[in-house]
Write a protein that binds this DNA or RNA. Structure first.
Length: 416
DNA sequence: AATTATTACAACCGCCTACCA
DNA sequence: ATGGTAGGCGGTTGTAATAAT
């Protein structure tokens, strides 16, 4: 049996609402209250579908709605909440008074997702010129002026480029938001769980998106991910695969190596970051995770590739992966084949991104894609705690990533 | 000045779930 | 237990607005 339509659509008006219609709807609801949307149009004398009336009311006519630009604080909150809740726009909207789910969704799709994509593109550029590049905003493209565009100089400053930390579910989300509202969240002792975006999601290896995230964020007396600032205790099925990297790979050595790499003319991370900034971020990341952590198993090298390929390059995850990779250097074919040492190995994956591996071609300039286990990349069989839907989503992410890449010719030749 | 390309965002669509008879 | 309905949600589309050519 087919689904019955929400209303009889014959003869109903569609498209933009006029002032007159708005006024009729507003007046009717003020007199009769919300609800009974199905019967509302008829009673109010509107030639609209009940759903359309509801949407119009909720998104534009009801009181307490903020109009105008999304503030930087709101934007920040959206990004952070998206990390925890994913595309649950209505849930995100409950934390942004006066903003509707539709508005937030649109803002995400038209502003934030693009920003993140731009950042990833910068981070994965194949430009081999080691010369530091100035931060230059892209040429203005044609099109309607966005609210965001009017908010000057917000995006292309380096100031805010640091990718937030991995999720640290140590406190209730509301508490974190309150903290954010009253202070600078970056200075807070505990951060709000961080944002994987659609393209970032694959990076939250340690805390996959969870529809019940809000309920679970208040961990109460649950153990922290961090154990005295050293290593990681995820208190989960991953326990067996957790490696205290500091034991295997002294932190000072990691820092030294990363420092050397950053000064070695390798600009894999991003053209818009200076070496110093990059190093600072890596160092902070290492400090943040209290030494080391690992989420994979013996196939962690492949995991690094998979995750990186499907997500934005993040300095934090980069640092983590670097260490993992360094630890697993013996299993890394390209390192041995090219005779690279641990340091080169770190360079290879220092953003955890497949594209960057192409930079490890070193002496001969050859591509190293052949050394990747692409079957595994596509199958995602080793993706952490994965299940079928995760794998499918990851696969879509990768395909999206490939598709979005500007250099189609290179992609074709590279991936066959 | 006209056209084209691109964008932001309002609105729609269809699916899902809770509720009720 | 079942089927119908309303409301809610996320994804997608249509289009007005705007910059670039």
């Amino acid at each position: 049996m087919g689904r019955t339509p929400c209303c009889e659509k014959v003869g109903l008006k569609k498209g933009r609402w006029t002032e007159e219609e708005d006024e009729i709807l507003r007046k009717y609801i003020q007199e009769n209250g919300e609800g009974s949307w199905r019967s509302l149009p008829k009673n109010a004398g509107l030639l609209r579908c009940g759903k359309s009336c509801r949407l119009r009311w909720i998104n534009y006519l009801r009181g307490n709605l903020k109009r105008g630009n999304i503030s930087s604080e709101e934007e920040d909150t959206i990004v952070k909440l998206h990390a925890s809740f994913g595309n649950s726009w209505s849930l995100i909207a409950t934390h942004l008074p006066g903003r509707t789910d539709n508005e937030i969704k649109n803002y995400w799709n038209s502003h934030l997702s693009r920003k993140i994509y731009s950042f990833r593109k910068l981070a994965t550029t194949t430009d081999t010129d080691p010369t530091p590049k100035p931060v230059i905003p892209p040429k203005r493209r044609s099109g309607r002026t966005s609210r965001w565009a009017m908010n000057k100089n917000k995006i292309y400053t380096q100031k805010g480029t640091r990718i937030p930390k991995q999720i640290v579910p140590q406190q209730n989300i509301n508490e974190a938001i309150h903290q954010k509202e009253t202070n600078d969240i970056n200075e807070a002792a505990v951060e709000v769980p961080l944002p994987p975006t659609p393209s970032l999601e694959r990076e939250s290896d340690f805390m996959p998106l969870d529809p019940d995230a809000e309920d679970k964020l208040d961990f109460g007396d649950e153990p922290s991910f961090y154990q005295d600032g050293k290593g990681l205790d995820i208190n989960s099925s991953l326990n067996d695969s957790i490696v205290d990297m500091e034991k295997q790979f002294p932190m000072e050595e990691v820092k030294t190596l990363m420092h050397d790499v950053s000064l070695d003319g390798e600009k894999q991370i991003s053209d818009h970051m200076t070496e110093g900034l990059y190093y600072q971020q890596v160092e902070e990341s290492i400090d943040d995770i209290g030494g080391a952590l690992s989420y994979g198993d013996k196939d962690i090298t492949d995991n690094n590739c998979v995750v990186g390929a499907c997500g934005i390059s993040s300095e934090d995850s980069g640092a983590i992966k670097v260490m993992n990779h360094g630890y697993n250097s013996e299993t890394n074919n390209e390192v041995h084949e090219l005779g690279h040492d641990k340091m080169q190995n770190i360079e290879d994956v220092n953003s955890g991104d497949v594209t960057l591996i192409t930079r490890s071609n070193g002496e001969n300039g050859e591509w190293l894609y052949d050394n990747l286990d692409w079957e595994n990349v596509m199958a995602f069989t080793n993706y952490g705690d994965n299940n079928e839907s995760d794998a499918r989503e990851s696969e879509e992410d990768l395909l999206t990533w490939l598709w979005k890449d500007d250099d189609w010719e290179i992609d074709c030749s590279t991936f066959g």
